[in-house]
Design a binder for these strands. Sequence first.
RNA 1: GCCGGGAUGGUGGAAUUGGUAGACACGCAAGACUUAAAAUCUUGUGGCUUCACGGCCGUGCGGGUUCGAUUCCCGCUCCUGGUACCA
Length: 924
Amino acid sequence: MADYNPQVIEKKWQAYWEQNQIFNAKVDKSKPKFYSLDMFPYPSGAGLHVGHPLGYIASDIITRYKRLQGFNVLHPMGYDSFGLPAEQYAIQTGQHPAITTEENIKRYTEQLKNIGFAFDWEKEVRTSDPAYYRWTQWIFMQLFNSYYDKSEDKAKGIGALIEHFEKSGNAGINAVCDEDTPEFNSEDWENFSPKQKQEILLKYRLTFLAETTVNWCAALGTVLSNDEVKDGFSERGGHPVERKKMMQWSMRITAYADRLLRGLDTVEWTEPIKEMQRNWIGKSKGAEMVFEVKGHDKQIKVFTTRIDTIYGVTYLALAPEHDFVQDLITEDQRKTAEAYVEVAKNRSERDRMTDVKTISGAFTGSYAINPFNGEEIQVWIADYVLAGYGTGAVMAVPAHDERDYNFAKHFGLEIRQVIEGSMEEGSFPGKGGIIMNSDFLSGLEMQAAMDKAIEFVEARKIGKGKIQFRMRDAIFTRQRYWGEPLPVYFKDGLPYLIEEKDLPLVLPEVDKYLPTEDGEPPLARAKDWNYKTTEGEFPLERSTMPGWAGSSWYFLRYMDPKNEDKFVDQEIAKYWGAVDLYIGGAEHATGHLLYSRFWTKFLFDLGVIDIEEPFQKMINQGMIQGRSNFVYRVKGTNKFVSLGLKDQYETSAMHVDVNIVHNDQLNLDKFKSWRPDLADAEFILEDGKYHCGSEVEKMSKSKYNVVNPDDIIERYGADTLRLYEMFLGPLEQFKPWNTNGIDGVSKFLKKLWKLYHNNAGEVSISNDAPSKDELKTLHKTIKKTEEDLENYSFNTSVASFMICVNELTAIKCNKRAILEPLAVLVSPYAPHIAEELWALLGNTDSIIKASFPEFKEEYLVENSHEYPVSINGKMRTKLSLSLSLTKEEIEKAALEDETVQKWLEGNVPKKMIVVPGKIVNIVI
RNA sequence: GCCGGGAUGGUGGAAUUGGUAGACACGCAAGACUUAAAAUCUUGUGGCUUCACGGCCGUGCGGGUUCGAUUCCCGCUCCUGGUACCA
């Protein structure tokens, strides 16, 4: 073989890897393990574009490197194959989403294989496969059968709870449950009907059915979770979303709030992602206390983080949705207050969000009593108070809270300062200040005042210290077809689990994928969607699970994907443990990454796995943006003018397919055949070339800027694609895709190839001992590659390969002792060419079985250094000096230098800084 | 508003703890090879200035610390991601 021919060698090695099962991972306790995971893709109909494989290439390089270091590597790939696009397509065409999904997966797999990833395809999972989702359903059943014991701070089987109820009711049980759970004793429990018992238990189960205010998206016909809604519109499709009360399954993720928070300290993720999760969980310490209402037997419960400012409270504010609102409105206020509630309630979430500046509210006419000083304060309704957070009521302290301040100003309510400081600039939080005007709290600092105030309310049994979380329980149902059915049936309106032996509960056939006429989810269309028990037939749940169900535990299934008896074998799970490196986008920060941590902790509590955190180390790759090209049509003609000349004409810009543009130069022939109307296009060129304009936009079909990896591979080869994606810049950075530099890495591979061949194109390797220079070049590169891989700095190691090959080419090196380790060094990045060169060197086994070359410092030891000599910090000359010189000797040599003499002009330097082995700086 | 990330030649980017700013590539220019083109190779390439040696300026902007700052500190501008009345 003469020339480097990527098309031939890449196919050859891909086939070799597959046939020889090179990447098949098996438990091997004699080797250290390394579990590398990529966020698995949703197989969309559009196929892969060049942005998708970016993270996969990075993780592939790491796993190949780890293999060379002797690790036993698990590096799987699979598909998150339930999802909206396939279902929308099914609604439009009537084709079963499973068919579309299957086709898309086939295409994705083909594309991924083309890039030469070292995936263990034996381990592939698909969330929409019944063999997979039977275990998703199984985990759901475990959640249903569990409650959260706060004393032990872990989930436990519901059986233990029932036992406790039988013994002593729910007194003394420290478990997470619904707010409205009644108190009962053992006798009550005994007397409850089975139905009542179920109702009670549902208030404790980790997954439960309850009426919740949900984000309802009418266009998609389903509810969405908070992280699927952006600014009042659905993230997918951008349809309007409204708030609606519905019966939904929820996951009691809030039970894990504190552990999810604490666990963040044990994982190596980037700080921004951890911070996002912390904010999302939103832990705040404060107190809960009640205010009596004058003339009512009602008590308004508020949550506050600043009970130290209790003497500054001048009014209470209730959310418009608060249960007491109707009762507290007095006759004389009825008209205005009710009108306000009506408006406020109907304002959509979106209106409230876009219009946060407008202050609105209404006085109820009722008065509450501040238990600290017996003062009567007005009770207002205000839409700045959210029904869903805390108690839906706040004690307003206008002097020390900005929103309360603005509200008080607007309605002319009293503002009473209780912390020392200046009110000139409006309210101030005054954290750490001294309390004033506050009776027995005056003179204290914030924390001391809070402690004392909490003592006060606790002594009177009107409140207590409390920790509040912002995070809500996660809604777990979608009114869609293409998702996991819930293993639940209904008897007397109450949910029961189907039996484990009946798993998987397979998605039924339906005639249409739309909701029914009366708004029931698509599964209501299925015939016989019932569960048969000895007592009869009962209807099955018609909603399905949300997209995040399957992805919350997939990393476990990869370890043991074909296991029919368990979701994963415990011994195998123990061996692979947590994911050592997780690569994916940052967009899952508060969704997937939180939910899978939750399920992992739950499974840990269950005792079926040994890890509490699924993803030990994570890096987030930056998205690849599109880079569009433009041509400029002279108005009213079929003439196109090059970018530099377009201002001389009246033109309109037109997107042009980036695939017929190279280095921003338009391929005229391809342009003419691009569309029929362009066949007779004329051009006004610059230097015989047509230069296109460019802009960074989202990668999308309509902008003609989608680049398919297959096209790049066809033209340059997969190794070039891999190298180029890495060479583009740091992995985490967002960057537009443009092919302008790709020739550089392609040339590099050709040069690399040539090192192993003579001018006649024959393999030519010398077995002579390498020279000092050759060894230096090699070891410099080993060192740099190793460091870069440890830091995930892939772009710089590609540059160091280029330097290495340039240097070896310059000295015409063809020594085996250099070229053999070089092939290994390059192999994680460009595995195909490396395998081929490895074989040409006479090796018979895959290069993956080789060892990463050992770096030897001795080859880099220098005995002289080229000192930059600076005058006043500016480099003026260089001086090559022996490294054995002392400071004084260096100083002397520098002063003798001609250039230095010139700058000194005969004067004595004010100061001299000499850092041996680094620099010389002379201050004059 | 709040919390992150960022800004370096015509372009992508490099500079490990403060120590030669612009590595490596692309592009461009000139040259070699060729009938020609492509490919390949060689040389040059931050700006201004100078015949040249050299000099001045230069890492978003304005200050500061330091012998020395892309790097550290203070104050701003712009871009970008997250979040949004969370009591």
